[in-house]
Computed example of a mutant assay.
Amino acid sequence: MLKKILVGLAAVILILVGVIASRPSEFTIQRSATLPASADLVFAQVNDFHLWSAWSPWARLDPNVKMTFSGAESGTGAVYYWTGNDQVGEGRMTIEESRPTEFVRIKLEFIKPFTVTNTSTFTFKPVEGGTEVTWAMSGNNNFVSKAFSLLMDMDKLLGKDFESGLANMKTVVEAETKKRAEAEAARLAEEKAAAEKAAAEQAAAGTQPAVAQPTP
């Protein structure tokens, strides 16, 4: 009887291993949103790691997360290292390619609680109403991640984070767009006031009575 049980258990394990092994070797998670802002403003939020804390869906999971920036100030070569609690773990991001207002590719390295390297990309496309941003992450599935995917829908799990991040970014760029509009309105008002003052001074100078010249 024990032998039959062991044989049956082995058969189940083999079947499970086969099912896990048959899972896709690669994955891609992707979400898109249209943000009411110009492409240059939206691009800047991704291209500069210093700005990520304002919209990243993981930044609020640990208010005490430690962040270190190195390499370029922004764009290609910029590096962002973080270490925090169990929810955010430890990792590093490096911008490998940056095309202004069009595309950013990032090497994403998780160190803790597990070690894995993925690729994140952001694509920016001007559309009616603003800029369409597509955020994607791709990588390879090892045996453990294939097994985990049987229990958890990773697209749904991480997709929610992507959607949250894009919603946060929308709030940020809306505020920045408003600041730009207010600054531009203030600049135009100053220029108008200066022009009116200059015109008034010229008009006043032109109507002043002539000063009598002394006779020789």
Rank of each mutant, 00 (worst) to 15 (best):
K4P: 02
V7Q: 02
V7C: 12
A10L: 14
L16A: 12
R23E: 11
F27T: 06
I29D: 00
S32A: 11
A33E: 07
A39Q: 11
A44I: 06
A44S: 11
N47E: 06
D48T: 10
S53N: 12
A54S: 15
W55P: 04
W55E: 08
S56A: 06
P57N: 01
W58N: 03
W58S: 00
A59N: 12
R60D: 13
L61P: 09
L61R: 13
V65I: 15
K66Y: 05
M67I: 08
T68S: 00
A72E: 09
E73N: 12
G75M: 09
G77L: 04
V79A: 05
V79Y: 02
Y80N: 09
Y81I: 02
W82G: 03
G89S: 01
G91I: 11
R92T: 06
M93L: 06
E96Y: 10
S98W: 04
E102R: 10
V104P: 00
V104M: 04
V104A: 10
F114T: 05
T115Y: 06
T117I: 10
N118F: 07
F122D: 09
T123G: 09
F124L: 08
F124G: 07
F124T: 14
K125Q: 13
P126F: 01
V127M: 14
M137G: 03
G139S: 03
K146Q: 07
A147E: 07
L158N: 08
G159M: 02
G159S: 08
K160F: 15
K160L: 09
S164A: 13
G165A: 06
L166H: 04
A167H: 04
K170T: 11
T177D: 11
K179Q: 11
R180L: 13
R180H: 00
E182K: 09
E182V: 10
A186G: 09
E191Q: 13
A193D: 11
A198M: 04
E201M: 02
Q202F: 00
Q202W: 03
G206I: 00
A210F: 04
T215W: 01
